[in-house]
Design a protein around this nucleic acid. Sequence first.
DNA 1: AAGATAGGCAACCGCCACAGT
DNA 2: GACTGTGGCGGTTGCCTATCT
Length: 257
Amino acid sequence: MVRTPCCDKSGLKKGTWTPEEDHKLVAYITRYGCWNWRRLPKYAGLMRCGKSCRLRWMNYLRPNIKRGNYSKEEEDTIIKLHASLGNRWSAIAAQLPGRTDNEIKNYWHTNLKKRLIKQKTASHEANFISNGLSQRETSQNRSVVHPIASQILESYPFSPQPSSSTETSSSTTDSSAAGGNSSNCASYDCSSLASMETVAELSGNFWTEPFFADNYYIPNDSMAPMVDPEILFHPPLSGELLYSDGFYNGHEGLRYW
DNA sequence: AAGATAGGCAACCGCCACAGT
DNA sequence: GACTGTGGCGGTTGCCTATCT
């Protein structure tokens, strides 16, 4: 079967998101919810792949996302969960409200993995020094030296037992239950948009513009369009929701809706 | 001060699972 | 059952910035 590309590659923007693009995405999802990621960029006025929009929303723009400043507890949790779950970052993220799988993954690779390797090496060296003299005689124990590396390799990334399908499905369930990382933005993200202060913190002044006060009205039926979104949403967006020339007015600052 | 290098992280890519037709 | 569309995940890439020489 030929896989359908996630989007038409031609003419789509890639790379770092601009504040304007963020703004458009947040505005659209806030107002209408994410009823279909692939079509969303078109209606939101974004020249982006739907996947890209989803990723941006899930990893950066979503409300209640914590960024940086991992607490000791969080670090311990990540290490512990990684030991038992392996590289199932989404499952790990489900246990850490406000953290995204991508961020945890990055944090693991940039911080925790190195630290763990260091610790294991250090602790093993300590063990070796204290025990080595009595053990060094046997060839068996010579191999103890090498398990340092193997221990590390075992813990990362292949150490966990292959997860059962139940685990996989439960992780999805956990994800929803945890509330912080539900993949269903229609049920989670949009209902939590009331607390947009969190988002406002994310991007500095941009997010503190009056836009939020006036535009984060969440209609009760924002989860999904009640009628065909093609009909419902397309026309207003060009005129009502989004400005074709962007939404920043040089004289007035951010425009209001 | 300028270039080289390393590290961090946002974003992309490809695959998979699942639901709907 | 086959096919299609969509969402989600993990691995990887590449840009940006900080640090080093």
